[in-house]
Every structure is written in C-alpha cells, then in structure tokens.
Amino acid sequence: MINKLILLIAVVLFHNYSFGQSGYQFPENYTILNIEPAKTDSRIKEANTPHLVVYNQQAKQGKLLLFLPGTGGIAAKGPKALFSVAVSQGYQVINLSYINTPAVAQICRGEVLEKNSKCTSQFRTMRIYGNNNFSLIDDQEHDAIVNRLTKLLTYLAENDTKGNWGSYLENGEPKWSEIAVSGQSQGGGMAAFIAKEHLVARVIDFSGGWDYSRKKEIAGWYFNKSVTPSNLWYGTYHVTEPAAKVIEASYVAMGIPKDHIYPFDLPVPKGKKGHSNGVRNIGYADQWIALLGKGN
C-alpha cells in the first residue's frame, strides 16, 4: 500500500510537475540544509555547488542514505521525491556534491582502454579515494568522494547537533555499516564500487554505468568479491536505455540477486530519457520503498 505521504507526493507531482521535480517542495517538518563543500574543507575549490542534506528530526534516527549524482548532476537539484520517500522510510539523506565530469565512460574508451584494461577501476579509485596515481583526470586527493563525505559529516556533527551526525563517523572515517550507498548513472557505479570494498548497510544502483575492460567485455572489477553481502545489493535500469543489456550484465556479474534487479518499464515522458527515469518518476514509489527498505 502507498501510504498517505507517498500518495500526496504522487498527486502533487503528477498534477503540477509532470514528473519533473524542479518545483518540488519537501514537507514542512523536514530539515533541509545546503552546504558548500568548501565550508567543510577549505582546500576544495572544484565542484563547490552545495551538498543537499535532508532529514526529519522528529523521527527516530535511522541509517544514512548517501546518494551520488550522475555525470553533470547538481546535488541541490537531485531527485527530491525519491529523497522524501527515503526520509519517510527512516533515513537521513545526503546528496553529495563531487566532481562528476568527465565521466568514466568519457575517459576509459578507445585506445586508452586498449592500453589499460583496468582504466575504469583506477578512475573510480581516484575519484572515490584520491589515493592512487591516475593522471587522466585532474581530481585532487581532497576532492575525493570519501573526503568530501567525511568532512561534511564532521561539519554537520559540529554545526547541526540535532542531526546526531557523529553516529555516522567512526575514528574520523565514515561508519559504513550505518550508511546505505546509492546513486544514479556514474554515481550508481561509484556506490557499487564502494560497496565492493566496504560493508555498507545497503547499496542501490540506479542505472549505474557500463564500465568495460576492453571492447564488448565488461570491466573486471564487477566480478571482484564484495565485502557487502549480495542480499543487500539492489540495481535498477529502464528497459529503453541504450545500455540496458550491459547494465543488467554488470548486475549479474556483481552477484545481485535476480529479484533485486528492477527493469523499470513505465512510459518515459516526452523529451525525457529512460536513463534518469528511475530516480525521477514517482510512479516507481512502491519500488523505491522496496529498494530502500526500512532505514530505522
């Protein structure tokens, strides 16, 4: 059953926003924060558009949902209806602002990929951790996703005590067991990469990319053993996406259970793309609830 909150969101979006979310307003009892990355770490200069933080301080605190936008995505313009559903499910939400251009698919291709079959994993390691030598992107160590998340959580713990953000940190690092990782497109791939190497609370990959080791061969990192068990993995894609078959193959390679893979198939509004429809179309509210589970 769709609860009253989800139904209200659906009605508002359907009648007023035609499945777009630029005008969507969060419920009044939600706390909404927009925080520039440079405020949390003065070294950060690139991709300094604000992180989006959303939670309901009146609710029992649950897990953190870390969402990573796709290529060119702006955190403050993220899929707010999806985030509202996540908060209603008991999560506190961070849509993280990070360097998301160029994308891995724009760098690890052609001759570059022919010379280096591990290009995509090295790219993602640099963008997530910033601790390897990968010269094909200009990201600095302090620009890395994990540093941005750590510094944001530290900042929130000091400046927004009502959110109890310190519970998502352990020894000055993200407490991954309390964090569900998610993202769309490039961001979904980043979430999956993190979940391979850390025991996270849950991973939800929305159309998470199509990394290759060589032409027509999906990337080797998809087959790496995962620290996060398979029952906590979920993946979605839209059946109209050009890369739908490749995305599905990557999910199978990562060991996502068949009933945890969601091939979305609702009609895509004119002028929109199936690739982003899974995080934007409120018609998937029931599926979002199943993907998220209970955060608290």
Rank of each mutant, 00 (worst) to 15 (best):
M1A: 11
I2G: 15
I9G: 00
V11F: 14
L13D: 14
F14S: 08
F19M: 15
G20F: 10
P37A: 08
T40E: 07
I44D: 00
E46H: 06
N48L: 11
V54F: 03
Y55A: 11
A59C: 12
Q61N: 05
F67V: 07
G70P: 01
A75W: 00
V85R: 01
V87P: 00
Y98C: 03
P102I: 03
A103V: 04
A103Q: 05
Q106V: 13
C108T: 06
E111Q: 07
K115L: 04
S117L: 12
Q122H: 13
R124K: 10
M126Q: 10
F134T: 08
I137Y: 03
D139I: 13
Q140S: 09
H142G: 09
R148H: 07
L152I: 09
L153E: 02
A157V: 04
T161P: 08
G166E: 02
E170Q: 14
E170K: 15
S185H: 03
G188V: 00
F206S: 01
S207W: 03
D211A: 09
Y212E: 02
R214H: 04
Y222S: 06
Y222G: 10
K225E: 07
S230F: 08
L232T: 02
L232S: 02
Y237S: 03
V239Q: 15
P242D: 12
A243W: 04
G255M: 04
K258L: 13
V268N: 02
K272Q: 07
K273S: 09
G274I: 01
N281R: 11
I289P: 01
G293D: 09
